[in-house]
Write a protein that binds this DNA or RNA. Structure first.
Lengths: 308, 308
DNA sequence: CTGTTAGCGCTTTCAA
DNA sequence: TTGAAAGCGCTAACAG
């Protein structure tokens, strides 16, 4: 396997010059750089990362943490951006509490393996974040459940359609009820119409049962997750209600299945968000602050919403 | 950051001994090994992979190629198994033709970065496989579209329920029609009921339109993908047909949305398949052959199938 | 602008 | 069973 000194010999320069030339470091004449680069390419030379990071301290690798690989676009976006920047992607799937505990138990090696950490769709506890910080690793986290903006869009939409009786179904791990936000948007809040449910289809179906027990049905339901939206949709239909004739449905999240059945949803621009997070991380690695604003969510109107 | 020689000093032995002890290499007395291990743990020592692989040649990393991150379970299963075996997972998302071309263009570095390659839900061309082989990297590929076994299960199921008029909807990139297989299972084949469609909900809906144009409807539809199954389901329902009263539906693939709406499906045991693939790869790395048989698919009967 | 000289932190002979 | 020494292939001072 050709090494850097092979290239150096072939180009008639020292290894140091090859190193500088290939990395775009200053201190090499343009002519030399061009020539060395060309020779290296001709020899199909590929730098040995191990040696490079051993000597240089930089690892050119980022750990990507993800709770589950469900949010594929986020991961794909981040991977693409990292790869484009010349970083390797070390994937860590923190599937369950056990895997998570194990990961944080065995954290130390991470410090020697990566330059930074990207947490995608895992909400890290403070201790967990601190543990990573203690390793001197910059950390950027992308939460996939920042509901505020999504909620604002959804509320605006149903309001515009004339709905006043709106139920809100939140994922059970959310502790706020977002009352002020809804009120600020112009919706009146009925406490019994703010519900929490597991993010599953079954959860959505149960929610409908609860709503049916009330004195009347809301004319619109805003669902925190796509699974729930689908459950609500199916259960309402089975109960003979028309969607959106009787009840409109908006999902605050837009996985495949939501678009598949035509449910209006707030879509996250997940790929772009992954790329944005990478931008933040790379900036942090350079010691800069990142200027870019995160991509914002947008509403995709489908067939599950109609004027009241 | 504590290095191996720090541990060596603390334990009163040489670095070579620490290295041997920690890796389970022979040539260390049990007592020494135990002691060294204990000291290392107490010092929270983490080996520097870079230095290790630079010196030793082994990299303890595997490249995982995936076309898209859709099949999360497969990826998660593989990741878990690799991690458990002490390997790092370098993720490469080969989203589109461009990303794919770029990857194979820049292959060389891979040889210095990983010990092996796992291809999950990407069907590599022969040239692509060869390119990886040329790097002397063992390669294990998991296809997620081996329909034969799934088809056999599905056919058996509908036959058992008494269906004779069965339509088969295949993904459009499949070129076989599987006639002999169906016949072997005991189903008679009507050419106009073997259809190809894009693996989308819309594709499934169109399929129903085609079927409705025929002189009569099949009593069961076997769908190659979950999206299609869902499309067929929704479209039939919208047309006033009862599922499974009028038509039974079986999906040959079981993504979330299929279970969510209660469609009978062949499920792939994807997590286990990922683990199995890792087993194969690790065996290849040890120069052994793997004995284990791949996990097989199984049928999950839900509410979309009923006796004819 | 370029070359020389030391290591980076391990693993691996080779001796003891 | 253990240790000493020699690198693995780079990068980072330091000279020139």
């Amino acid at each position: 396997m050709t090494s850097m000194s092979d290239v150096a010999r072939a180009a008639g320069v020292s290894a140091a010059t090859v190193s500088r030339a290939l990395r775009g470091e200053p201190g090499v004449s343009e002519a030399t750089r061009r020539y060395v680069t060309e020779v290296a390419k001709r020899m199909r030379y590929a730098i040995a990362r191990d040696a490079s990071s051993l000597a240089g301290g930089r690892r050119y690798a980022v750990a990507v943490l993800t709770a589950d690989v469900g949010r594929g676009d986020l991961l794909a976006g981040a991977e693409g951006a990292l790869r484009a920047a010349g970083y390797d992607v070390l994937l860590y799937v923190l599937r369950d509490a056990e895997a998570r505990a194990r990961f944080f138990e065995e954290l130390p090696p991470l410090g020697r393996r990566v330059d930074g950490v990207l947490a995608l769709s895992v909400t890290l506890t403070d201790e967990e974040s601190d543990a990573i910080g203690a390793l001197d690793l910059p950390l950027v986290a992308v939460r996939d459940d920042d509901l505020r903006e999504a909620l604002r869009l959804a509320a605006g939409h149903v309001l515009e359609l004339g709905h006043r009786d709106v139920a809100l179904v939140l994922p059970e791990d959310v502790d706020e009820s977002y009352d002020e936000l809804l009120v600020a948007e112009g919706l009146s809040v009925r406490p019994e119409w703010t519900l929490w449910s597991s993010s599953t289809v079954a959860g959505g179906e149960q929610v409908v049962d609860v709503l049916l027990d009330g004195d009347r049905l809301p004319t619109a339901v805003v669902c925190g997750s796509g699974q729930v939206a689908l459950g609500v949709f199916l259960r309402l239909r089975r109960d003979g209600r028309d969607v959106p004739g009787d009840v409109s449905i908006v999902s605050l999240d837009g996985p495949d299945l939501v678009s598949a059945v035509g449910i209006t949803a707030v879509e996250g621009a997940w790929r772009e968000r992954g790329e944005h997070a990478v931008g933040q991380l790379l900036a942090a690695l350079r010691g800069e602050a990142d200027d870019a604003k995160p991509p914002s969510v947008h509403l995709v109107v489908r067939e599950s919403t109609a004027p009241r």
